[in-house]
Nucleic acid binder design. Structure first.
Length: 495
RNA sequence: GCACCGGUGGCGAAGUGGCUAACGCGCUGGUCUGCAAAACCAGUAUUCGCCGGUUCAAUCCCGGCCCGGUGCUCCA
C-alpha cells in the first residue's frame, strides 16, 4: 500500500522491511483521565491502518505503549492519595473498554512505561557513554541536542542558532541549552521513584517510547504512528535519542493523524465542546456511529465532528445493516444467471471489492472506499427490485460486505451492549444524571417484553383492531423502539 | 510574528488541467402499506473562499488576500 510519510513529506510504499510482518509502534494514551473523541480518532485511524494492512495480506506486529507515569499522573495520584498504580488502573481499564466499544483491534503488544524502566535506563546509559546525555545538578539527565545535527528533520524545523542563546541560558541554569530535554527526572520529595544506575527518579516522557519500541520491534522498524501534536517535540526527541544511541534509522515511516474540530471549533474544555466517548454514549449516540464518523474522513484531513454528522452516520450504518440483512435473508428466486459470467451483480461485487481495497491502499482513502460500498448498495437494491438477482450473487455481495467490515467494523450490532455498559458505569460513578432520558427509555424494556408487545400488535392487526395496534406502535415509538412491517413479519430495532 | 495543512451543494466530504464534480445525511417526488413508519427508487452544486496570473482550457498549477486548524515563539 501507499502511505504518506511525514519524514519525507511524500506518499510512499509501505512494506515490511523483513518481508514478514510490518513492525509498527503507535503512541498510546497517558492514563490520567477518560479518553476523548480526539484521542479516539487517532486510535481508530491506526486501527484502520492495521486492518487495511491485514486485508491486503500483510501481517502486522503492532506495539502500543501506555504512559502510566508522568507529571499529571503524579499530581492527580497525589491529590487522590493513591499510588500511581492504583490511580492509573481505573483509566487503563476504561481505555481498553472504550477501544472495545469502538471495535478497535488490540495491538499485538501493549507496553507499559512502568514495566520497562530497565530498558529505558539502558538506553540512557548508551547515550551517557557517548557523552550525549548529561547529568544536571539536581540529578536529572538531559539529552544534548547540539550533538544531533539532524534535530528537526521530522517536523522540518531549523534550530540552528536557537539552541545556544545567552539569554536563554540565564533562565535555564539546570540545562546546557534551553532545548535539551529530560531523559530522566530526579524525584521531588515523596514522589514515586525508581532506584537505578542513573540515580533515583523516573523516566522522561520521550524515552519510554524509544526504549519500548526498540525493545519489542528492534532498533530499526517500519512505522511509527501518533496524533499530529506528537510530531514535535515528542517524535522529534524520540528520533534524536534513538538514532544517537544506535546510529541507525529509528522508524522509516511516520504516520500522523490530524486533529479534529468539534462543531467547527477546536475541541477544548473552555469552549464547552470537549467530549469523552462515554459522554457521547450517555447522550444516546451509538458506538458504531461514532466509529463510522471518526474513520470516514481520511486521516490527513481535519474532520469536523458534529452531532448532525453523528446522527447522519447512525442512519448510514443502519442502512448498511439493513442491506446486509436483506441480502442474507430475502428468499431469492435462486435461478441461475443467464450465463455463468453474465450476472451484473456478481461482477459489480467483484469490482467494488477491488475499488474498496484500492482506495484504502491509496493512503487510506476511507471516504472513497465507503463510497464504493454505497454505490454497490444502491445498484444491488435496484437489481434486486427488478428481479435481476441470481444464484451466486448473494455470496458475492456478502463477501464484499465482509471485506468492507474487516476494516470498517460497523455491521455487527454491539451498540446496545456498550450503551448498557456505559449506563452501569455512570451509575457507579454517580453520573447517571448525565444520561439522556431517551437512552434510559430505549433500554427500559427487555427484548422479550418488546417482542411480546410486537406479537400482541400483530394479533390486533389480524383482527383488524387497528386502534390497539397503533397504540402499541406509538407507545413503543415513544420509547425509541421502531417497528418495521414486512412480508416476512415484524422487525423492531432500538433507535 | 514564523512554518505547515485546509477552505467543494443545507451539513459532512471525495476528486480531477478539458469527459454528467463521487459518496453519506438532509430535502422533494414516487413505490410499498389498513394508515404510518421503515425499506427501496428517482431528483436535488452551470459550480469548487476572494482577486489576479499561466494555459487553447483551472475547482485542480502560480502569486496575493481573507477565514479555519496545528506546531513554534510568547506566556504560564
Amino acid at each position: 500500500m501507499r502511505l504518506f510519510n511525514t519524514l519525507s513529506g511524500q506518499v510512499e510504499d509501505l512494506v515490511p522491511s523483513d518481508g514478514k510482518a510490518l513492525r509498527m509502534y503507535a503512541c498510546g494514551p497517558t492514563v490520567y483521565d477518560y479518553g476523548h473523541i480526539g484521542n479516539f480518532r487517532t486510535f481508530l485511524q491506526v486501527d484502520v491502518l492495521r486492518r487495511t494492512l491485514r486485508l491486503l495480506g500483510t501481517d502486522v506486529r503492532h506495539v502500543m505503549n501506555i504512559t502510566d507515569v508522568d507529571d499529571k499522573i503524579i499530581r492527580n495520584a497525589t491529590a487522590a492519595k493513591l499510588s500511581i498504580t492504583d490511580y492509573t488502573r481505573k483509566y487503563q481499564e476504561a481505555f481498553f473498554q472504550d477501544l472495545d466499544a469502538l471495535q478497535v483491534q488490540r495491538p499485538e503488544i501493549v507496553a507499559r512505561a512502568t514495566e520497562n524502566i530497565p530498558a529505558m535506563v539502558a538506553l540512557i546509559q548508551r547515550l551517557t557513554e557517548q557523552d550525549i546525555a548529561y547529568r544536571a545538578e539536581d540529578g536529572s539527565w538531559y539529552f544534548r541536542i547540539a550533538r544531533f545535527p539532524e534535530y528537526g528533520k521530522l517536523s522540518r524545523k531549523d534550530f540552528g542558532g536557537i539552541t545556544d542563546g545567552a539569554r536563554i541560558d540565564v533562565d535555564e541554569y539546570e540545562k546546557d541549552s534551553a532545548r535539551d530535554f529530560a531523559l530522566w527526572k530526579a524525584p521531588k520529595p515523596g514522589e514515586h521513584q525508581w532506584q537505578t544506575a542513573l540515580g533515583p527518579g523516573r523516566p522522561g516522557w520521550h524515552i519510554e517510547c524509544s526504549a519500548m519500541a526498540m525493545e519489542f520491534l528492534g532498533e530499526s522498524f517500519d512505522l511509527h504512528a501518533g496524533g499530529e501534536d506528537l510530531m514535535f517535540p515528542h517524535h522529534e526527541n524520540e528520533i534524536a535519542q534513538s538514532e544517537s544511541a544506535t546510529h541507525r534509522t529509528f522508524a522509516r515511516h511516520w504516520f500522523h493523524v490530524r486533529f479534529l474540530l468539534v462543531e467547527g471549533r477546536k475541541m477544548s474544555k473552555s469552549e464547552g465542546n470537549f467530549y469523552t466517548l462515554r459522554d457521547l454514549l450517555l447522550r444516546g449516540y451509538k458506538a458504531s456511529a461514532i466509529r463510522m464518523l471518526l474513520i470516514s474522513v481520511p486521516y490527513r484531513q481535519q474532520l469536523n465532528f458534529t452531532f448532525e454528522g453523528l446522527a447522519a452516520e447512525t442512519i448510514a450504518v443502519e442502512r448498511l445493516r439493513t442491506f446486509r440483512d436483506r441480502v442474507r435473508n430475502t428468499p431469492w428466486p435462486g435461478r441461475p444467471a443467464p450465463s455463468p459470467d453474465s450476472s451484473e451483480i456478481s461482477a459489480l461485487a467483484r469490482d467494488t471489492r477491488a475499488r474498496f481495497a484500492a482506495a484504502l491502499a491509496d493512503d487510506l482513502n476511507t471516504a472513497e472506499a465507503r463510497a464504493a460500498i454505497f454505490e454497490m448498495v444502491r445498484a444491488v437494491n435496484a437489481c434486486a427490485d427488478a428481479g435481476a438477482f441470481f444464484a451466486g450473487d448473494q455470496q458475492a455481495v456478502l463477501e464484499t460486505l465482509r471485506e468492507f467490515d474487516q476494516v470498517f467494523a460497523v455491521l455487527d450490532d454491539h451498540d446496545d451492549q456498550w450503551t448498557r455498559f456505559t449506563l452501569q458505569w455512570a451509575e457507579s460513578e454517580g453520573r447517571l444524571k448525565d444520561a439522556a432520558p431517551e437512552v434510559l427509555a430505549r433500554l427500559e424494556l427487555s427484548d422479550e417484553q418488546i417482542q411480546a408487545l410486537v406479537d400482541e400488535r400483530t394479533q390486533a392487526k389480524r383482527t383488524r383492531n387497528f386502534a390497539r395496534a397503533d397504540q402499541i406502535r406509538n407507545d413503543l415509538a415513544a420509547k425509541g423502539i421502531l417497528l418495521e412491517d414486512s412480508k416476512d413479519g415484524v422487525r423492531w430495532k432500538r433507535k
